[in-house]
Amino acid sequence: MSPRRRDELLVWRWSSTVTMTLMTIVGFLSFTWPFFVSSESTLATSNDAPWLFPVLVGLLCLVLVAQLSGGTMDAKSVAVLGVLAAMGGALRVLSAGTAGLEPLFFLLVLGGRVLGRAGGFLLGAFAITTGAFLTSGVGPWLPFQMFAAGWVGMGAAMLPAVRPRLERWMLTAYGLVAGLAYGAIMNLWFWPFLGSSAPSGAGFAATASLATQLQHYAVFYGLTSLGWDLPRGVLTAVLVLLACHPVLAALRRALRRAAFDAAPTFDVRTSRGTSEDFVG
């Protein structure tokens, strides 16, 4: 089951929807601006324009995290997000250097599914940040990675609620797609840095049409990173397929147990089943 509204780890307010929508558009443009830029605009002609976007995305990512976490995070969500982000960071450090084999995404997909939209986004962002801090690898790529990983976690939470058996296959397919899409979009942030000197036919040319740009990018992507992204997508899918049920069950049980402020309800018919709600 997809988390019901009241089961989500963090409250999702209307302002979260507005902020997230605006940020998603800005973030999407920050990733894909090479495709949309018109030839006579300042971005196309200026030399240091590509550097605008790491700064922009970095600052806005902080704003978004503040908006999603502000006022809604209590001790429980801090602890759960912290411990899960620790697992994500550890997985990321372990997998550093192995070509594309990143088991982190498996945690993001399943964790995001259980934690809900805000929790899933924050899990992705925190796990990436923890991994970066552990390796002292805080660079201009970090904001983009936080954003993309947050999307992966949030996307898993936004998939429809289905029966458990179907959910397993749905998450497996999602893992495959997310692993591939993450790589495709993460290449975009530094593609324009290749600038004017980029190879003809695979480089960013601000004057070219959208179709040409897409074709160039496809060539660039196929040449440089498909070999890295395919293993990641497949690994994520396989891990989700194998461990979906036990991991989801463990996460859901933990969240239910951590509901300290759940109001006790005494229902004559189900009173035997709800005793777990008071454990904590």
């Binding site: 902080l62 912290g82 982000a85 620790a86």
Partner: peptide, 18 residues
């Protein structure tokens, strides 16, 4: 800043638990 305090705490927790 204060608005990011909770997020900062979560990351500190994460770093401690690794």
């Amino acid at each position: 800043p204060a608005t990011l305090y909770d997020a900062g705490t979560a990351i500190v927790v994460a770093m401690t638990y690794v």
